[in-house]
Nucleic acid binder design. Structure first.
Length: 136
DNA sequence: GCCAACGTTGGC
DNA sequence: GCCAACGTTGGC
């Protein structure tokens, strides 16, 4: 099982909207590295949901419910989507600032490669963020 | 709104 | 196949 983090701008697609929908196909990825990550996702993998620009925080956990398939919003076979469903909202959103300050998270893709919108996390990094959000 | 980082494109 | 120009992302 792998762990991932995906970014969404809240005004475009927020965690709340995601929960209203119940599940969604994760479209709009137009970057090969991010695309490769989508392709590597397997059903049941856990995915952190991060709000970029507004908030800049990890707000919840989703899971992969359907593995990659052709992006329905384009004819271009280069691009794929996966289906995600919300699993759990963090008790408290974990901000980028906290992540940057945490020594266990200093090598996380979110900080190292700020522009990548879909990235893999180590299990420890995933667990640490969840711990920060649900801690005590 | 600015700008740095960085991926992509296209001319050669 | 190199690399400069360009476009996009996302933090500030």
């Amino acid at each position: 099982m792998n762990h991932w983090l995906v970014k969404s701008e809240p005004h475009k697609y927020s965690w709340d909207k995601f929960n209203e929908d119940g599940s969604t196909f994760w479209d709009g990825v137009r970057n090969y590295q991010a695309r490769n990550n989508l392709r590597a996702m397997e059903k049941g993998d856990l995915v952190l949901f991060y709000h970029s620009n507004e908030g800049k925080e990890v707000v919840g956990i989703a899971k992969v419910v359907k593995e990659f398939y052709q992006d329905p919003t384009t004819e271009d076979p280069n691009w794929v989507v996966v289906d995600l469903a919300p699993l759990e909202k963090l008790k408290r959103a974990v901000t980028l600032e906290e992540i940057k300050k945490d020594s266990r998270l200093e090598n996380i893709g979110l900080v190292k490669q700020g522009r990548l919108s879909v990235m893999q996390l180590k299990a420890e990094e995933f667990d640490r963020i969840v711990e920060l959000g649900n801690g005590d």
